[in-house]
Every structure is written in C-alpha cells, then in structure tokens.
Design a protein around this nucleic acid. Sequence first.
RNA 1: GCGGGUAUAGCUUAGUGGUAAAGUUCCUGCCUUCCAAGCAGGCCAUGAGGGUUCGAUUCCCUCUACCCGCUCCA
Length: 589
Amino acid sequence: MSKTPDSESRMEKIVSLAKRRGFIFQSSEIYGGIGGFWDYGPLGAELKRNLRDTWWRTMTRDREDVVGLDATIIMHPSIWKASGHVDTFADLMRECTITNKRVRADHVEPQSGSVMRFSGAKAPNNWRVDREITLLMKQGEHIESFRKRVRQLLVQNAGSAAGKPEEIELLNEERIDAVTDSIEFHPETGGLLNEARPFNLMLKTYIGPTATEDDIAYLRPETAQAIFAQFKNVCDSSRVKVPFGIAQIGKAFRNEVTPKNFTFRSREFEQMELEFFIKPDEAVQLIHGSVATWSEGADLSVPQPNWGWELWHRYWYAERIAYYAGIGLGQESLGEIWQTKADLAHYARACVDILFKFPFGTEELEGIAARGSFDLTQHQTHSGKQLEYFDEELKAACDQLTPEQKVAFIQKAHSERFNPDTTIEETTAFCEKLFKGLYIPHVIEPSAGLDRLALAILSSSFEEEVVTDEKGKSETRTVLHFHPRIAPIKVGIFPLLKNKPELVAKAREIVALLRPHMAVFYDETGAIGRRYRRQDEAGTPFGVTIDFDTLGEEKPEFKETVTLRERDSMQQRRIPIAELLPFLLGKIL
RNA sequence: GCGGGUAUAGCUUAGUGGUAAAGUUCCUGCCUUCCAAGCAGGCCAUGAGGGUUCGAUUCCCUCUACCCGCUCCA
C-alpha cells in the first residue's frame, strides 16, 4: 500500500480532530509526551467503551457457549516461560552498525576476510555519513563488488535521502586487518556489530520493595495466556462443556521497537481476545464417526457437533466479519490475509488476519488463529497440573469400541497426524487418553485490538463534506459518520434560543427524559447551525431542537413535537416528543 | 536503533537578535425561528534544558515528542 500526500494529510486531519474534539491525546503531554502511549479524552473514552461493550455483548452475553474472565496484568513469571515469550523476547541481540539489522548474539556465524574501513561517505545531493564505516570484505569477494555492496547497504539504510547507490562516494578506504573466524560481523551484511545487549519486548517490573533480580515480573504482552492459565478453574466452576469459549478484554504491553502510525502501534494497548476450546478432530471422529470439513460455500450459520477445527476456524472468521459490519465497518473497508503454511508459527494450523484500510496502509485489525492444543499443553508441562478435559460423550462412544477397532483407529490417526514429527508412541498415548474420554482441547483464537478498532472507526467515519447552501455558498462540513450504536453521544438537545426560559425548560425536560437511556448532550450556545455542526464533528447521529411550535404557539398541531435532525443526511422532520425515546432506542441498540 | 523532516494560542498558520501577528475555536452579553449568521467584549502560545549575547521565540548544542523512509513486528 503506497502512501500518497492525500492519505498523509487525511491522517493528519484525523489526528488533529482527535485532539481538538477530545478523542485522543498524547500521554503526559504537558511533560513533553512519552513515546508510544496515548490517552483517550472524553469522547474517545465513550467511543472506546461502546466498542468494548459491543464486543463483549456479541462475544459473551449474546451466546450460550462463551463465558468471561478478567485477569490481572501481572502474573506469575513462569506463565511467560511456558508461553515462550521469555525465550523469544529476552535474547541478547547485536546490531549491524551499517544497516541496524539485528542478529541474536549466539547466532553469529564465524567469518573470515579483510576488515575494511571508510571514514565516511557522501553523495552529490549533500547527503553524507560522518561516522566510520567498518565492514568485513569476505574471503574471495572482489574489491569492486565489495564497494558496490557497501554503497547499496548505505542506500538501503538511508532510504531516499542518499540518492542512487552508484553516485555515493566512499571516503578514505583502508584495509586495517585480516581476521579468521571472527564473530564481530553481521552474517548477512558483513557490517561491524555493536556490543551485545538484551532485547526484550516485554515490559518488566519488580514485585515487592526490594526490587532484586529475583523479583522480576512482566506486564502481560497479551491477555490470552491468562485464559489458558485459568482454564481449569473456569471448567471446574462454570459447568461449561467443550466446545466453549473464554473471553477477556484488557490492557497488554509491548516494548515496540518503533511505535508509529498514531495509536496503531502503541506500547500500552487493549486487547479483546476469545479462546474458543474445541474437541480435537480425532475426538469428533470417535463420537460422530466422521469429521465435517470446510468447503467453499459451507453453511457456517449454526455450529454443528461434528465440525472439525477448520469449520470452527471459518465459523469464527465469519462471526467476526459480521461483527464489524454491525458497527459500520463493511467488507469494502476490510481486507484479509490467509497465512500460508510457511508463515505460520510451528504450533499453528491456520491463521487469518482481518485487515483495515487505514490511511497509512492496510494493516491488521484482528488475527484469528487455529492454535491446536499448544498453549494448554505448554502450561500443563510447565505447571505440572493436569489440564486435560474429561468428555463424557467421548468416553461413552469409546466404550463401545472393540480392541481391534481401537488399534485400527490408532493406525489411522497416526497416518493422518498433523505434525509429521509425531512418533507412533505419541499417537498411541494420545489415543489411549481419548479412549478414556480425556484430551487437551484445541483452540481457535480471535484476537482483536481495541485501540486499533477505535482508530479504524475514526478513519472510516471521518469525512470532509462540501455542502452548498441555498445562496450557493459552499463550505466544508467535517463529520464523523459513527454508527449510532458506537457513537459517543447519541443525541444533541438544543433549545432554539437560550434567552427564552420556556424553550430552555422544555429542552431540559427532554434531556431528563432521554439521559437515563443514552448519552445525551445539551447545548444552548451560539446559532443553531453551529450547534449542529459541532455535533457532526463529534459524530453525534441525531439532533433534537425545541422551538416555539413545541410549546404550541401559532400552530397548535405542532404542540409537543420537536425537530429531529439526522447527521448524515442533514434531513429534518417533526416528531412527537412521545415517540422520541422509542425511535432513538431502536437506532442505538 | 539509523537517516530525513517538524515543534509559535485548543486548531490552522504568520513573523522577528529588542513589546509575538492573524484567522478560527472557545467563553460572556445582545438578538422570536433551523445548518459554522451579525454586533460588542474576553481568555489562551514560542516543546524541555543548556550555551553565545546587554538582550534569544529567532543563532549554536543536548534532550523529548510527532511525521516520513529504513528496521522491527512471538
């Protein structure tokens, strides 16, 4: 996705509006701000809460098969050991001093060759590098191809600023040393590496006042692990039966290398995650005699007992797309990427990303992964606690099997195993557990970013509309086309004139009528047109104006009616006050 | 983390080595009729720290944040 000046300025306008109207502020702004952290102002807080509520309602309350969880941000450090986050994120890393490419300190392959140094480099367009550039000319590399390579590396790193590689002049070349099996140079670029330093994307803290190395804990980099860690407690306390899900919304923290694109990549952010636990396909096979698999056009509307993991994965994808449509993000604003087998993490079976066309590019809004039984298995191993699920239906089905049928089943299961490294012993052990009704559930994980969703909603809602009045004068109307369901303010209430106590009193009555049911905003200042436009910028879908007709002056037939103004069309119509509440409730629920 | 750019009022911009300018927003008042109307009044700013200088918003250095490009992205 290429950036255009238009998309850049559109983003700038959105950022500016977000601040001006109190959606999103820079965190700690009066102290100069802090990178990668953002606050939500009054309207932003309402918007985010509405989004959070729609997710929670759709994913848990509206369903019989999902329950909620609200776990702590700081958990036992072993959780992150089991999940793999400590190992993946805590490596010592070294960086190439030319290109800043990183490499794990213990993964640097020994290389031999000549150590070459330049005092700097410059280009005709006045771009220059004033620091020393040191690289390894690999054994057998021709000096000219080496120089060409160095120029390319410099351009690669500097981007457009450096101009064309062939125009770069390398300054004061000297050969300073010959080395054998050195681990001081980047394996790909040959650039000198800097000192090794720890590189951890998890935010650390200390528990207890002594703050020693033994007290280290982590702020969760994802909310999902708490769900796995509490899986057994939820099972034991909630009378849930596989297939079922556990949903959670909460803050997560990552030390992003480069926070960017406004709130899109932040260091503190909010996730909305569901772990939906399903029977392994082998269990479905034993119970139902077959496993339903996905094919184009399959009916995904109602889950079926014989669904295998793939149908469940497709089902959740369809559910999530429907959710987005319900809050105003139609398919035209979304994209999708189905990860190929090669891109998948080793434990994942499939993963689809739901993308949104942001002004700065098409980026991920949500990922829906089929993760097999990896996470629960890891926690079972590391905690030493049984996390197997006892499935009565499965046990009953297996009790009907003859020993010969069981042997045949094991052979079939092994020939169809997902991971080719699985040994026959492992398959046998797995099947023997199944015959007793025991398994570790597999999981489908729809994981969405709340802040990203809020940004997507702002981006898709934002419009600068040119409107022309009766006199032929045109001007720009800035409007946020929020779906009424998620709009921070549902209705603005305006007395036509504020210096007429009768109008103000009547308007206050309507405020009192509606406030118990929705977010309302009362505004009596300035011209009525200005008040409408103010609410357009805040994304308020409806405006109600109280005038002298409301009081029954002149036209008795209009008594107890008000003007209802619709944000997107700017249409106005007369509506009886008695119909106001039912009408608005119908729009926002 | 590297390179480039930016930082003046809530917002958009102007300007200067010697009292910082405007539009807009916002607030107050006047106005009996529906899309940023009019009139009158009012509030608010040089990102932080250091240096040069009689004097710095302006020149220099450092820091911070944001934007763009690389890089990173379990």
